[in-house]
């Protein structure tokens, strides 16, 4: 028997970094499965290539930086999976590897590794690819012919006004053209609910973002439900914006972040036809996070106690 001394507290919440990452990966399983279901084997190979190459790059960087291996914290695998979900299913696999290299090596590790990266690695990788290979990145394939062909459109619903022929139901259940992960709102919501239950997902960013989008769409005279369900809005809201490292730290900062993102995304959607505009907006906003942190601290000190009485642990 040995007696140890250490500072209080003497017990910890069992949920540590790797279990959080694992839970987020689990929450993305329905989305990935539906992606594979709709787009077939190409989607599966994109997902697998992406995860494996992300892990490989992580190991490579760890070796170069003489660090302990960090692949077991799950963050690299998560980056790989998230990147895959934003890609079109028919993309050449070497591009997937390249995108992951950009994500892991440049965006994540050159900035200092997990916890220090300013930009969301998965989204930056996707943007890198869409800037470098615009053609491959916008070749959206048709979902497999299992589905009723009437509902199938071959572009993401926002690409052109004229192709807006999908129904809300279809957007909800899946089967719309687009990247692997954005077809089914249902699967994404399922994952989000799981994360919410686990206490991993905080409502503030998705809440303020989605309500801003909804209200602005309403004000702009467009279909608000369409705006919520299509174009990867939900994937972005629940899995991309809420990335811990690249979102603001304070509660007020998060509310503000969601709101500003909503405004930005809607102005892109109203005034330009850029496909994948959401990814641009999020990465742009990531750059604002240090500023929002400062604002968030000030607001937390002076405004927060006036608005919220008490939010305590359950």
């Amino acid at each position: 028997m040995r007696l140890f001394i250490a500072a209080s507290p003497h017990s910890r919440n069992p949920q540590d970094v790797s279990s959080i990452m694992l839970n987020v990966i689990l929450a993305l399983v329905p989305t990935s499965l539906l992606g594979v279901f709709f787009f077939g084997i190409p989607a599966l190979s994109v997902i697998i290539t992406s995860i494996l190459s992300a892990l490989a790059f992580e190991v490579g960087v760890n070796t170069l930086r003489h660090q302990k291996l960090t692949i077991f914290d799950g963050s690299a695998a998560l980056t790989g999976l998230l990147l895959a979900l934003t890609l079109p299913p028919v993309i050449p696999l070497w591009m997937v590897v390249l995108g992951n290299g950009f994500s892991i090596v440049i965006v994540k590790h050159l900035f200092g590794g997990l916890g220090h990266n300013l930009f969301n690695p998965a989204l930056s990788g996707r943007l890198f690819l869409s800037v470098t290979y615009p053609v491959a990145m916008s070749s959206w394939s048709k979902p497999s012919a299992l589905l009723d062909p009437i509902y199938i459109s071959s572009a993401t619903p926002f690409a052109k006004e004229s192709t807006l022929i999908v129904s809300h139901w279809q957007l909800f259940w899946g089967g719309v053209g687009g990247s692997i992960g954005e077809t089914s709102a249902f699967a994404i919501l399922l994952g989000a609910i799981w994360l919410f239950k686990k206490g991993i997902l905080d409502w503030k960013i998705p809440g303020s973002f989605l309500s801003t989008v909804f209200l602005l769409a309403l004000l702009g005279g467009q279909d608000p439900v369409l705006h919520l369900l299509a174009g990867g809005t939900l994937l972005g809201a629940f899995f991309m914006m809420t990335d811990y490292v690249t979102s603001p730290l304070t509660k007020m900062g998060r509310l503000l972040y969601g709101f500003l993102l909503g405004v930005l995304v809607m102005s892109v959607r109203f005034f330009s036809q850029m496909p994948g505009g959401l990814a641009f907006c999020i990465v742009l906003m990531n750059g604002m996070v240090p500023l929002l942190d400062k604002a968030g601290i000030t607001l937390h000190l002076h405004v927060y106690p006036l608005i919220f009485k008490e939010i305590q642990e359950k």
Binding site: V17, T250, K251, E310, E313
Partner: peptide, 29 residues
């Protein structure tokens, strides 16, 4: 209680410390 050694890692900016502080302190700050 049993002794467990906890290895600190870098802050992942999850904001949980802030969410859970009962007296509105921002612990990491």
């Amino acid at each position: 209680l049993e002794h467990t050694n906890y290895e600190p890692q870098k802050c992942i900016r999850c904001g949980r410390c802030i969410d859970h502080c009962p007296v509105f302190v921002m612990p990491i700050i």
